[in-house]
Design a protein around this nucleic acid. Structure first.
Lengths: 191, 191
DNA sequence: TTACAATCCTAACGAACGTTAAGTATGGAG
DNA sequence: CTCCATACTTAACGTTCGTTAGGATTGTAA
């Protein structure tokens, strides 16, 4: 993200503020102050406060998710999920804050009805996607539901731990936790 | 919580609003409107908006946590944690919203520095407490760190799933997920 | 040099905010 | 009946909010 470009600088600061203080706690004046530009410049580039927020969530956040998933070199099941979580450790501060803001909206802790609905739809696509990835490796396909659900739950908190609370979790720790769930349930040799 | 008492009715509505709209998104006027009282009545019972919020978090929320932990009849390890999570299924709407608000502050999604610090201190007491509970049952005490951490992570998302997203998770599902982590690590017979 | 679009500013708008001043009802104690 | 604390009100305070009107500056094309 270019720092010379005023429009982008505004968005960058906006993400920091929305992330830190929430939608209502963020003011256009505070953003303008930090960007060191006049107040109406924000309305020059963005129609309103709401549009600025919308663009961040529906553009930048979803783009970040796609960018992260493209990084995956998917080897085996445990390696795949370990990599997915571990990549978050090396997120830039900016991306981490953007991710955090996304989670916040996703959890209905900020934003309004529209955003929450969009996030819900996205979430419903998660379970089948993981089930599809794991299915071929399972010893007992009947256990699929429990295993996938427990896996998603574990992934969720690992993500929250890293992205929301800003902690670093070493790769071997991530692998150990994921293995705890998967190692007894997937076929040997695929590990 | 008495509904005849105006002071309590104000707090009840305040919790709903803080939970739904965040600290900055909640206005004294909106609360007064819904309680159907005049605006200064809120200042008659509470010194300021901040004090009202503080009391909810440091009084009511922590009391709810204690009340929940007292309900536990702690049998075996898996039963203990299953009960802990399952009890959240039967939380009243009011308590669930209060719990959600607490999680929100705990995750630094709302509130200010003081609250977040208080929550961090509380959180640091969690790991040793669970380690202590589980230690006697572990087959290999060297694995303690991984197991306890994975357990806490799993519990966290189960709690979020029920309290934040408002889903119902059947007791057997909770037990299955917790067993997935614990059943291979704790001594047989203690299950 | 002129014309014009893009980029920026100061100053102000009305609305909504947290908060308070100044009072009015009410009901029990003396 | 008087007194007074409790429970409540209307009306306004000063401040900050999102937003905009109206104009200045700048670089470029004709």
């Amino acid at each position: 993200m270019e720092d010379t470009n005023l429009k982008d600088r505004i968005k960058k600061v906006a993400i920091e503020h929305f992330n830190k203080n929430g939608y209502h706690g963020t003011t256009i004046r505070n953003i303008a102050n930090e960007v060191n530009c006049s107040l109406p410049m924000i309305y020059y580039y963005y129609k309103s406060k709401k549009e600025l927020f919308d663009e961040i969530i529906t553009n930048d956040y979803l783009q970040l998710l796609k960018r992260q998933s493209k990084k995956l070199t998917k080897s085996d099941a445990i390696g795949f999920y370990t990599e997915l979580v571990n990549n978050l450790n090396s997120l830039s501060d900016f991306d981490r804050h953007l991710y955090r803001l996304g989670i916040k909206v996703y959890m209905s802790f900020d934003g309004d009805e529209e955003h929450i609905q969009a996030m819900d739809e996205y979430e419903e696509s998660i379970y089948p996607r993981h089930a599809e990835i794991l299915m071929p490796y399972l010893i007992n396909p009947a256990d699929c539901t429990v295993i996938v659900r427990a896996l998603i739950h574990l992934l969720d908190t690992l993500i929250i731990e890293i992205v929301v609370k800003g902690r670093y979790i070493p790769e071997e720790d991530i692998r150990a936790e994921i293995s705890l769930i998967l190692s007894n349930s997937i076929k040997p040799g695929t590990l």
